[in-house]
Every structure is written in structure tokens, then in C-alpha cells.
Design a protein around this nucleic acid. Structure first.
Lengths: 238, 238
DNA sequence: TGCTTTTTGTTTGGTACCGGACAAAGTCCG
DNA sequence: CGGACTTTGTCCGGTACCAAACAAAAAGCA
């Protein structure tokens, strides 16, 4: 993770939804950082000392089993903050938070956030409301993992990643996506190949390009977009 | 749901872990209720006005999809309280909470709990700590839904139900368990039949008996019991 | 008692994905 | 340039589970 000197514009929608005065006070305590692909932002079982508000990119919430297999159980991108639940008093992480691809984020200490929540009722309210929606997203993912096909979930994931990346092309290997979706790589390659032949995506050696977004939305399960409306309502349209 | 007159002994481990004075104040505002099988305690999208602390029995947290299919994404039994997360400021439920079989619980208004949390630091702490573990259980279930076989998950569910029921025999149809596990009934019948032939369980028309607990634990996935140790640490051994 | 409903057993064909393996193609690095 | 490594394509047998259907047995009800 690299600290950079020039603080760029805030694109994180959670932060942008805050009152100007509140955001100003937070800004002075935030640090702009670049996160490296696969960087572990919060380790399962550890205390949560810092929060990350992504501008670009996102982090996957990953649960690992004893045999090493793992699945993504949720994701946090530019509409929220990594570690948000810790602000409600939950001090220890129960899943790994792993950065996806490269991205940029504002880092701020949990203590600073808590202090600001004391001062700003608006912030405290937004944290609770956003955390509520986050739980909904978690529940959706849990059910999705059980009920929907690999192809549907693959499309959903690509759409979500597309939203967070802000670019049509981003780094992603079959191997890694399979890991996130909790399936074999060979199975995912077949699905990815068929999406490519269908003209929905294009990829070469670890880079995907979203070609036909509407087509992907068509193939994805309902789980993509279920909470979009409520997010827009809470944070304003993007 | 029936209100009964004689307040019986408290068996809920969350409540029992509270300081005596705190519990006493809560008790005066609690109402002992019997919950009916499949009674919806909290509806998805609604505000959470009451909490339920089960003595016997438990409730399933269920996420339904648009097409009517559904899965259990978690459960709350006598080691916790239904609606606990609402005490952290999350006002609206994002999943259905449905009572399993019949059970008994103490009902208390969210407002009363919040008032008592102001007074009792111990309660406030316990709520946060228990909520943290609950999130861990949620994450475990989400991953389990993806990674583990029907038989493993079936065994896990039966063990959990056994713990909560407090009796070796309890009401449960194949149809309903299949619904909870998010699979077809016919598939579940086959698994249940093999468990019965293996001497692990016995069932007749909507009633299951746990015959060989150790055997079930052997067949179940690691997801059963993962959080037991931490629960014991937090609430004391049962 | 007989009829209806609920619950379970079982089949059948089909699909999705596993688990493992190997080859081909692209990329990195010395 | 050549060799090592990464990424993707593909194939295999096998299993788990789907989706739908029908029958049988038990329980409830008139």
C-alpha cells in the first residue's frame, strides 16, 4: 500500500452523502492510499483499527474453510466503507477483507470515525442506515450462493466489479474469479468462454473487458441490482 | 402466539450471562410467550419493535427470492436473541425471521432493551459481543451454502435443531427441511433415508428423533461447532 | 367407516459442476 | 533468444442434485 501526497477528489458515494462540514472534518484525518491487488485489508479475527473508503476498486469479504477452500460472501466498493460495522461496536472481524485488483481509497482510523460520530448525528445515522443495507446485501449473497447457477453468479460478479472499477477493462484471472465464486477453475473457464463467444465480455490473460453490459444484466441473477434502488435513495443517484 | 401467566425459569443463555441486577430489571418488562410453528416473528422490510429470547426452540432467518425459492441464511436459538442487531441501530429487518417448530421465548420491546443498555454497560457490551459472533455465524452459513454437500448441511442442521429443542424428538418434515436447506424435497428424502438406515436418526410423519448424535457430528461439516467455543467463552458453558 | 390430505419413498432423465489431468498459448525473465 | 511460469482451453469419468412425476402409507376428518 502506498501513501500518495496529492489528495484527489472524493468519489466514494458514502462520503459524498455526508454534510459538507462533517466531511471536511473527516477529510483532515483521512489518508489517500493505493491498495495493491489481493492486499489483505482486514484479517479474520483481528481488531478493526482502520476503515477504507474506496474511490475506485473494491474489496471482497472472504470466508475460508479449514481445508483451504473459500468463497466470497460479500463485497464493499465505492458505495460504502470497509469496516463500517465496526462503528456499531463490533470490534473483531469475522471474515477476511481482500482488495480486488488495484484501487484507491481513503483510510481513516476507527477511533477518528467514532469521535466524529459523536459530533455528527448525520454521520451516525448514515452509518447505521448503510450498515443495514449491507446486511441485506450479505443475506442476498448467502442465498445466491445456494440458489443460482455459476453463469448467473459470474455475470453478477462481473457487473459489480465493473461498477466499482469505473473502467471497462480490469485485471481478473479465471483462477481468481473461480476462487471468489467458490467453484473449480475449469468450470469457470467454460462459462467465461461461452460469455466471450456470446460477445458479452472479452478477456486475455488476466484482463477482462465488459463488452455488452445489458447482455450481462440479462444473464445475471436478480441478486445484482436488488439493493441498488435503496442505495440510490440513501446516497443519492450516482 | 399465546401469552402465559406463570413466568418460568430463564434458560436463554444470553439472558443468563447478564448481571443479576440488570436481568431483574429486564425481567419485569419481559413477557413469556409461546411461539407457534412457522410463525413469522419479524417480516423482511419491517421495523423491529420486539426482541425474542428463546428458552426452547429457535427461529430461522430466511431470505426469499422473487421466484419464491428460499434458503435459511442463519438461525437464532437460546444462545442469543431475535432482533439483536436492531439494538446496534439497524432498524429494519432485511430477512424474514420464522419460528421453527414450537418454542417458548421471552419477548421484550426494543425500546426497553435500548433504555436498559443506557443503564447497563454490561448489557451493552454483551449485545455487541454476541452480535459480532452472530455475524461470524452468518458468514459461516453463507460459505457453507456454497461449499458443503446436502448431507453435511442436513446433519449440521439437525444438530443445531437438537441443541435448541432440548429434546431428542421434535417436529420436522422433509418438505420443510428441504425448504430451509434450499434443495428439492426428493433429494432431501434420499439423504434422510440414508441417515435413518445408518441409525443416526429416526423419523415418522413430521417428527424426527436424534438417535446417534456423535454419528451426526461425524457426518456434519465443520460449520457445526465452529463458533461453539467462542460462545461458551462469552456466555459461559451451558 | 371411507374420503381427503399430508408425508414419505422412489423413479427417470437430465444438467451442473467436481476433481483431476494435460496441452497450448501467452508472458516474464535471465 | 530460450526456458520457466502463468493463464486458458479442454477433456474425462463421476457425482450431486434438479425437476417432475407417481405411488404408497399414515393421519385427519366427515
Amino acid at each position: 500500500m502506498n501513501q500518495t501526497r496529492d489528495e484527489p477528489a472524493i468519489e466514494n458515494r458514502f462520503l459524498l452523502a455526508l454534510p459538507e462540514s462533517c466531511l471536511k472534518r473527516l477529510t483532515s484525518q483521512m489518508e489517500f492510499v493505493e491498495v495493491r491487488p489481493r492486499e489483505v485489508l482486514i484479517r479474520a479475527g483481528s481488531t478493526i483499527d482502520n476503515l477504507y473508503f474506496f474511490n475506485r476498486g473494491f474489496a471482497s469479504l472472504v470466508k475460508a474453510m479449514r481445508d483451504g477452500r473459500m468463497v466470497e460472501i460479500g463485497a464493499v466498493g465505492p458505495t460504502s466503507g470497509v469496516g463500517l460495522l465496526s462503528l456499531l461496536g463490533l470490534e473483531r472481524a469475522v471474515w477476511e477483507t481482500v482488495a480486488q485488483g488495484s484501487g484507491t481509497a481513503f483510510r481513516i482510523s476507527r477511533a477518528a470515525m467514532l469521535a466524529e460520530m459523536e459530533k455528527s448525528h448525520a454521520l451516525a445515522e448514515l452509518v447505521k442506515k448503510r450498515a443495514g443495507l449491507f446486511l441485506g446485501e450479505l443475506a442476498q449473497a448467502a442465498a445466491c450462493n445456494r440458489l443460482h447457477s455459476l453463469e448467473q453468479r459470474c455475470c453478477r460478479w462481473l457487473l459489480m466489479a465493473h461498477d466499482c472499477a469505473g473502467t471497462d477493462t480490469f485485471a481478473l484471472t479465471h483462477e481468481f474469479l473461480a476462487l471468489m465464486l467458490g467453484v473449480q477453475r475449469s468450470g469457470l473457464s467454460i462459462v467465461a468462454g461461452s460469455l466471450q463467444r456470446g460477445g458479452l465480455i472479452r478477456y486475455t490473460r488476466g484482463r477482462v473487458t465488459i463488452v455488452d453490459r445489458a447482455g450481462l444484466e440479462n444473464e445475471a441473477c436478480e441478486c445484482y441490482g436488488t439493493w441498488q434502488g435503496q442505495l440510490d435513495h440513501l446516497l443519492g443517484k450516482s
